[in-house]
Nucleic acid binder design. Structure first.
Lengths: 137, 137
DNA sequence: GATTAACTTGACGTGTACGTCAAGCGTACG
DNA sequence: CGTACGCTTGACGTACACGTCAAGTTAATC
């Protein structure tokens, strides 16, 4: 059977393109995040699947769980451009952003703490090294 | 036996003070993060345990695993007398710092990304709202 | 002294996001 | 024609940080 360049992709092409494992794609399908077509027993991922996967991977970067991501995808998908849905998406994203900013503030705090600890440690190390060779020029 | 105010705390006092469950404290003990004394079969958490728990909880907020936290605790605990040990401590702390800075960079990236997404979404929402009432005012 | 509250130790359960076999099928290649 | 590769579906395993019983013991209270 010749490779009909019908704008669908095999699981392997998907993996290579998006740097995920086959297991991941099957897992996302089981979670109803993707809906690849079947050619016999084999999956064919459509343009829509690829668009969704992009959003999934980006959502993961933002710290959404897969369930949250599915919710967002469903909102986007359900009759596309309804104002109420867009606003809901916006609201959820806003919450996530606040969350992330909070985490970053804490992380900054911790980084500064650890930095000062390191400074302190470095000082002690220098001190001990001096004691080890009290007359080092 | 009267309550000798011997600067130790029961598991319940610990839970109330630090807002954790007994299970958590026992879990931390099993993980060798805490070393409460025993009074008969009951735990008595010392000042040292409380100091360690504070650090544990802070570490958790920053996204460290318990294993990493134990490593850090061992660092803080290392008595600071031996140069080699201190330098080892310093080295590990440096690694952690690099780790955290890397995570912060990623988080920053994701935050900026999400912010621009939000902006885009807000624009679309405004657009739809305009279409919904083309003759507003 | 008896009840009950609080503590104890197992040991299995939970949720997330997959990893890792096992066993089978279909087909492209030599 | 056979075999090796890639895909398929289960189904169990993993890591983290505990939750949730169960069953027993101790301590405090009436």
């Amino acid at each position: 059977m010749p490779d009909a360049p019908d704008d669908t992709m095999t699981i392997r092409e998907m993996c290579d393109t998006f740097d995920v494992t086959p297991r991941t794609l099957r897992f996302y399908e089981a979670k109803e995040l993707l809906f690849p077509l079947r050619e016999g027993p084999h999956r064919r991922f459509t343009k829509r699947d690829r668009a969704r996967l992009k959003l999934i991977l980006r959502g993961k970067r933002f710290g959404f769980t897969l369930d949250q991501i599915r919710e967002l995808l469903d909102l986007y998908n359900a009759d596309g451009q309804h104002l109420v849905q867009l606003m809901r998406v916006h609201e959820l994203a806003q919450e996530r952003l606040t969350d992330m900013e909070h985490r970053r503030a804490e992380l900054d705090d911790a980084i500064n703490d650890l930095r000062s600890q390191l400074k302190w440690g470095a000082a002690r190390i220098a001190e001990l090294q001096n004691n080890a060779r009290p007359n080092a020029r």
